[in-house]
């Protein structure tokens, strides 16, 4: 409708253990003005040296889809739980891979 809002975003990395190594997956969480009643909007923020691996939980824009977000119910659902779910999910299916250095 053309309206704009100023939102709070949290940017950082999530420590993920994949095949025995720990990687710091860069993510950004956008908190809506209706937070915590609505889940944050989450993105993977690949650096220039990374490429997004689309899959069940990540689309081509890096947007993250998780049951935890879809079934968000405060106060049980909160950021710490969300990040813990990301650590598990990304440990099985990393959302980003480093670009092959030609």
């Amino acid at each position: 409708d053309g309206s704009t809002k100023e939102l709070l975003s949290l940017t950082g990395t999530v420590p993920v253990n994949y095949r025995g190594n720990v990687y710091n997956i860069p993510i950004c969480l956008w908190l809506l003005d209706t937070y915590p009643y609505n889940p944050p909007i989450c993105f993977v923020k690949p650096t220039s040296a990374m490429m997004i691996k689309t899959g069940k939980h990540v689309d081509a824009n890096g947007k993250i889809y998780l049951p935890y977000l879809h079934e968000w119910k405060p106060p049980q659902s909160e950021l710490l739980g969300l990040i813990q779910v990301m650590i598990v999910v990304f440990g099985e299916e990393p959302p980003v891979f480093s670009r092959p250095t030609t």
Binding site: G12, T13, P15, Y18, R19, N21, Y23, N24, I25, P26, K45, P46, T47, A49, M50, M51, P94, V96, F97, S98, P100
Partner: peptide, 13 residues
């Protein structure tokens, strides 16, 4: 100091 972002090497299929 926040950790430096890193990602696994692509798995060669």
């Amino acid at each position: 100091k926040s950790p430096t972002p890193s990602a696994p090497a692509p798995v060669s299929l």
